[in-house]
Amino acid sequence: MRRILAVAEYIFKQNFRNKILNVLIIFAILSIGFSLLISELAKEVEIRMTKDFGLFSISIFAFLTLVLSLTIQLFEETELKTISMVIVKPITRAEFIIGKFFGIILTIFMNILFMFIILMVVIKIRGGDPWDLKLFLSVAGTFLSLSILTSVALFLSVITTSIPGCIIFLFFTYILGHLTVHLKNLQYKITNQLVYKIIDILYIMVPNLELFNLKDKIHTNFSLFTFDYILLIISYSIIYILIMLILTVIIFNKKEF
C-alpha cells in the first residue's frame, strides 16, 4: 500500500511541478471571458450558456490534463529510462501500475475540483445557483469518464511505446465512446450481419462514455440524475477500470526494459 501511495504521490508531484495545473488559469480566463461575451449576446439564457460552456471546458481541460500527464510519464519511461531503476526495487509491477493510475487521476481530480470552483464562482456572479446538484453530478460524471480513459491510456501505454500513437488511440476512444450508444440505437435497422456484429463488439469493448456525459442532459427536467442511474454508472466505471488494470498488469508483467 505504501508503495502504491509513493508512486501516486511521485507522479502527482511531477505533474504538478510540470505546471500542468497552469491549464486552470486558461480555464478561468476562458470561462469568465465567454460568460461575459454571451451575457451580451443571449441575455435570457446566459446562466444556461455559462454552465454549458463551463462544463465543456472542464471536460476538455481534464482530457488535456490526462494527455499531458501521460506524455510526461511515457517520456520519462521511454527516453529517460528511470523506469528500470524503479522496476528493480522491491515493488511489484501491479503496484507500480496501480500507483500510476491513482497518481494520474489524482492530478485530474485536483484540476477538475479547481475548475469546478471557478465555474461555481462565475455562475454565482452571473446570478445563477452554484449549488445545483445536477451541476455537481455532471462534473462527477466527467471525472468518472476521465478515470476510465486513464485506465485505457495505461493499457495503451503498455502495448505501444509510441507517445503519439498512444494519444491518437486515446482520442479515438474518446470519440467512439460517445458514439456507441447511438450505434446501438441504430442497430435494429441494420440487416448486414457483419456490421451488426461489429457494432456489438464496439459496444462491449469501447468504454461507453456517453453514459457519463451528464453535462449534455443537465437541462432535462425529468432525467437521468436518479440514484439508480448514478449507482449503475459508478459500478460500470469501477468494473471497466478493474478489467483494464488487470489486462495492463498482465501485459506489463511480460514487458522487458
Partner: peptide, 14 residues
C-alpha cells in the same frame, strides 16, 4: 458484470 451494467444504464439512457 460490465455487460449487465452497460445494458442497464444504456436502457435507462434511451
Amino acid at each position: 458484470l460490465i455487460n449487465y451494467t452497460n445494458n442497464k444504464a444504456t436502457e435507462y439512457l434511451m
